[in-house]
Amino acid sequence: MSENSRDRGTGSAEYRGLFIALEGGDGAGKSTQSRLLAERLGAAGREVLTTREPGGTPIGEKLRNLVLDHGHGEIDARTEALMFAASRAAHAEQVLRPALEQGKTVITDRYIDSSVAYQGGGRSLGAVAVRDLNAWATAGLWPDLTILLDVDPAGGRSRRTTGSSVEDRLESEPDDFHGRIRVAFLELAATAPKRYLVLDASLPVEELAGIIGNRVDELLAARGAERSAS
């Protein structure tokens, strides 16, 4: 999959806002970095929307509970992929595009790459099939920047089981499942290096936040320069 084919679709460049996705295995620290980035941008006067997947809309949150909580019976791989895609379709249409049209910086905790990694890689449905399904579901809306927090399966499990935390249905899968996910994420990043920022999730939280913030500042400055010149 080439970078050009990976980036086909409407993208967010047609909108006033900037679209950022945080990706990585369970326990990578995405939620923490999403919060810290939003705080940094808010302090600089940027209007920011933080959201998550699956979820972000009323129907998306219901689907999140169905697909992640234990106790809903067997969910086969294709059904799982379609549930994530349905949640994402609502998210893109009802939340992401409107916010980008308003000029907001949108930060989402997971997006299409999670489905490609988890269902395409982890469930062995194939990266291309899952990518194409989600490209259709979102009408080709891709992030301007994808931040991949790379975590090994053992490290991720150690982080997410600290204290009283209980693993959800996907988190509780064996380490070989999470190993396939990690490989899939890294392969995705290799296809479009200009659009990815790959970081070692084991780095100190504040160090990661500084690297991410600097990269986003550069993107915002470049976007502003492009618009001034047009």
Rank of each mutant, 00 (worst) to 15 (best):
M1P: 04
N4L: 14
S5M: 08
R8N: 07
T10L: 13
T10Q: 14
S12F: 06
A13Y: 00
E14R: 15
G17V: 04
F19R: 06
A21I: 02
A21E: 09
L22I: 03
G25D: 02
D26R: 04
G29W: 07
S31V: 08
S31P: 05
S34G: 11
R35H: 12
R35Y: 01
R40T: 10
T50W: 02
T51L: 04
R52K: 13
R52A: 10
R52M: 04
G56L: 07
G56H: 00
K62A: 15
L66V: 11
H70D: 04
G71T: 08
G73F: 10
I75Q: 09
D76Q: 14
D76E: 14
A77R: 13
T79Q: 12
T79N: 07
L82H: 06
L82F: 15
S87N: 09
R88M: 11
R88P: 08
A89I: 00
A90R: 08
A90F: 03
Q94H: 12
R97T: 15
P98N: 12
L100F: 11
Q102T: 01
K104L: 13
T105D: 03
T108I: 13
D109R: 05
D109Q: 04
R110V: 05
V116M: 14
Y118D: 01
Y118P: 05
Q119M: 11
G120T: 11
G121K: 08
S124A: 15
G126I: 10
D132T: 15
L133H: 07
N134V: 10
T138R: 13
A139C: 03
A139P: 00
L141C: 10
D144R: 05
L145R: 13
V151R: 06
V151Y: 06
D152E: 13
A154R: 14
A154Y: 00
R157I: 00
T161S: 13
G163C: 08
S164Q: 15
V166A: 14
R169E: 07
E171Y: 05
S172I: 00
P174H: 03
P174E: 01
H178N: 02
G179W: 09
R180F: 12
I181P: 02
I181S: 10
R182C: 12
V183N: 11
F185Y: 15
L186E: 15
L188G: 08
L188R: 14
A190F: 01
A190C: 04
A192Q: 00
P193E: 10
P193V: 08
K194D: 15
R195T: 13
Y196A: 02
L197W: 02
L197Y: 03
V198M: 03
S202C: 02
P204S: 11
E207K: 12
I211G: 00
I211C: 02
R215E: 14
V216C: 06
V216F: 05
E218D: 14
L220Q: 08
L220K: 03
A221K: 07
A222W: 07
R227Q: 14
R227Y: 01
